[in-house]
Structures are given as structure tokens and as C-alpha cells.
Amino acid sequence: MDEGKVSRRDRSLWWIAGVVVIAYALFPVAWIVSVSFKTPSDLGSNRFLPTTWVWENYENILAGGAQDLFLSALRNSVGISLLATFISVVLATFAAYAIARLDFPGKRVILTTALAVAIFPVISIVTPLFNLWRNIGLYDTWPGLIIPYLSLTLPISIWTLSAFFRQIPWELEQAAQVDGATTWQAFRKVIVPLATPGVFTTAILSFFIAWNDFVYGISLTSTEAARPVPAALAFFTGASQFVDPAGAIAAAAVVVTIPVVVLVLLFQRRIVSGLTQGAVKG
């Protein structure tokens, strides 16, 4: 009985700690949401909740004056992030498989290079990239952003995926080959299904990196042709130059957060750990 009490007290402590952490992490988000529902005159009211709840800011960015700026940026962000994620996951899957399974010269070089690229500060290559892109005509285009995004997403994708592939027992592939599969069939019918959780995890990570990028987005674009949302937020203006655009910015921030949340909720069930359980041993 005593032990039961202790564990119940423990559990309530855990709950309290959890609530504190969640409140701490979500407070800025709640604030943004609250700001997005305020009228411009309400912004300086020093109150957490809006005095009157209005959809004005959302109307402004989705249908009103800021519509052109926001919707094209949203389209750019979605397109560029999805493409960058897709290319990076496909490339990383093959690369990671080779790294996990094959012994080839230069394997360590690839891994260390990937790590080196990942720790290289983004800001230091933006300027040369800006010049280069301008000269070869990639400035302010989708590929002009997708390529730098690949340099951000590929290293982490290769690292996570190769760790994932290493967990898959090699015997499974050999068993498939003995059962009559070609190398490609063994890869497609056995390895890929088992690696799916890893691929999805990697895809989500890549998508976040591309989606959240600001430095490349602001430096390598100049018009609506390629400017992504994080960069576009800085160009919002109020109804007149005397109106604070914070409400519109907050509304846009809320709108771009939604796809990310949806994505995680959607793929959460695909990221099941322990899918390889039961393959080997007794």
C-alpha cells in the first residue's frame, strides 16, 4: 500500500513537471495566436487576450491587401520545401543504404564530409552563393533555394538513415536473395518496408529544415517568384505606414505553423519504433 502511495505521488510530480514544461514551451505560441486575433489598436493594450476577437488579420493576409505577398510566399514555401525534401530523401536513402551495406573506398570521407557540411555555418556561405547565383541565373528561382536546402538536409538525412539501415539485420536481405529475390527486389520488398519509419522521420526533419529556413530565403530571393514565407513575413506592412503589421505577421506565422503540426500528427503513426522486432533471434 505504501509503495502505491509513493508511486501516486511520483506520478503527480511528473504531471506537474510536464505541465510546467509544456506551458513554458507553448506560451510564445499562445501569445502569437492571441496577437493574431487582435485589432491593430489592441496591440499595445498590455493584455494577453484580445479585448475583441477579430479575423481581420487573417482576412488581410489571405484575401486582403497582404494577399499577394503571403499567398505566393506560401506557394513557394510549400513547393520548395516538398521538392527539397523529396530529392533529399531519395538521394539519402540510396546513399545511406550504400554506406550501411557496402564497403567501398571513400566511405568514411563521405560521412565526414556530410558532417562537416552540416556544421558549416550557413551565414558564411550565403554571400558567395548570392554572387554565384546572380551570375549563373539561379538567383530568385526555386532551384536557387532547393540546391542550398539540399546541402542542409542531405547530411542529416544520410546520417539518420544510415543509422537506421544498420539496425536492419543483414540476414534478412540474404534470406530474400536465397528465396529468389534480386538485389533490387530484396531492397524494395524487405529493406524499404522496414526502413519506412526511418524514411518518414528523415523526411519530416528535412521538411522542417527547409520550411523554417530564413537566411537563404531572405538572401537569395528578391521577388514573389521564389520568396518563402519566413522571408516574406518581414515585408508585411500595415494598412498605412503608421499601422503596426504585427497582427498580420502573427496571423501568417500561425498559418505556416499549421502544416507542420498536421504533418507531424499525420506521420506520427508511421514513425513506429521497433518495427524490426521479431525478425531475428528467439
Binding site: 539485420p169 540476414e171 534478412l172 540474404q174 534470406a175 530474400a176 536465397v178 528465396d179 529468389g180 524487405v190 518496408p193 522496414l194 518495427l275 524490426t276 522486432q277 521479431g278 525478425a279 531475428v280 533471434k281 528467439g282
Partner: peptide
């Protein structure tokens, strides 16, 4: 066209 039973069975978990 041989069939093999592996030491750790190597069943396809999915």
C-alpha cells in the same frame, strides 16, 4: 534454387 534456414531465422518482420 536452394533454401536456407538461418541461425537467427531472418523472418521478415513486416
Amino acid at each position: 534454387n536452394l533454401s536456407m534456414v538461418f541461425q537467427n531465422y531472418a523472418l521478415y518482420p513486416h
